Simulated assay, not measured.
Amino acid sequence: MKNILKTYLYYLIMLVIVGIVLLGLYFTYVWNQDQPQNHDQSQHQDQSQNQDQSQNQDKYQNFSQLKSDTEKNSDWQRNIKKTNNKDILITAIHGGGIEPGTSELAKIISKKGDFNLYSFEGLLKSNNKQLHITSTRFDDSKLKEMSNKSKESISIHGYQSDENAVYIGGRDKKMADSIKKELEKEGFNVEESPNRIDGSSNNNFINKNDSGSGVQLEISTSIRKSFFKKDNLDRKTRENTSKYRQSIYDFAEAVTKGIHSQT
């Protein structure tokens, strides 16, 4: 009889212990569900949402839509230069009045390094932003043709900010590091790009060349203004090279040196 009571008591104690453990696990689970979302996950979601919002804000989702709704050489123009050096392609797909200063810089880099050039330039009197097509959707056949024949693509972009910063990204980390070092030698503040503008997407045209990688530069409004006298980004100033400051040439020279050191 005593042995039976001991056995019952043993199992009763074990059940109580198991119950306590299960209750502890349950309350731990409930507590975790009530906690704020992990910062990295939240940041990633915010960046993804920002990227989706940027794409959704574009009036045109691809080049065909833009081309059918606008007039070439009146609303926009291409600027294409082909050299004997087919390996390097310099691009500014948001040039002219879309992201002012980017196509002007791209042309100088192309000239200094004797690189191929593709720029798409907004010519509207106002609201050139409506001609913006994000890099993952910019599918002009002329650009595709040049990209397919290139080993390296360097894409020049602008972002709206008063901060003194250049963001650099892309899959070609060695080339990005090389350009970053040369820009820093000239006194430019260069930082790693946030995920949403880092140029790493498979759909980004800079990754559709022979090497499957490239470099994307995002230049703040403040720095682009500093390229021109009186910090003026209007079309009249940008089309007059006598209004250019030395800083735009220093920037272009640094990018060119960075490219040459890796090719």
Rank of each mutant, 00 (worst) to 15 (best):
S68D: 15
P194M: 10
D58M: 10
I20A: 12
Y60R: 09
G95P: 07
K2V: 14
M14I: 15
V215Y: 03
Q57C: 10
L25A: 15
P100F: 11
T91Y: 02
R235T: 10
R245D: 06
K185M: 09
N79C: 05
S200Q: 15
N207F: 11
S222M: 15
D198H: 11
F63G: 00
K6R: 05
Q41R: 12
R196P: 11
L9D: 07
G95T: 02
L143G: 14
G95K: 00
L233K: 09
I90P: 12
L233W: 09
L15P: 00
S220P: 00
Y26G: 13
S178M: 00
N127H: 08
S161H: 07
T221M: 14
L233V: 15
K144Q: 05
E152K: 04
S126G: 04
I168R: 07
E152W: 09
G24I: 12
Y60L: 13
Y249S: 10
I179A: 03
E184L: 12
K151C: 11
K81I: 01
S220E: 08
N73I: 12
H39V: 06
R196C: 15
I4R: 13
K142P: 08
S261W: 07
I93W: 02
L12E: 06
Q41E: 15
D172W: 08
K236L: 00
D250T: 14
F227E: 03
K208A: 08
F63Y: 01
T83D: 08
Q130G: 08
V166Q: 13
K229Y: 09
K144V: 02
T136L: 00
T102F: 03
S68Q: 10
L233T: 11
I20Y: 11
D231V: 03
S226K: 09
R235S: 09
K236T: 01
N50D: 08
K111S: 13
F227Q: 08
S261F: 12
A176Y: 01
S211G: 08
I248P: 00
K243E: 11
D172R: 04
K86R: 11
Q246M: 07
S242Y: 05
E218G: 06
V255M: 06
I133W: 07
I154P: 04
R224N: 08
I17A: 14
N73D: 14
V18C: 05
T241P: 05
Q246L: 07
F251D: 05
F120N: 03
A176Q: 02
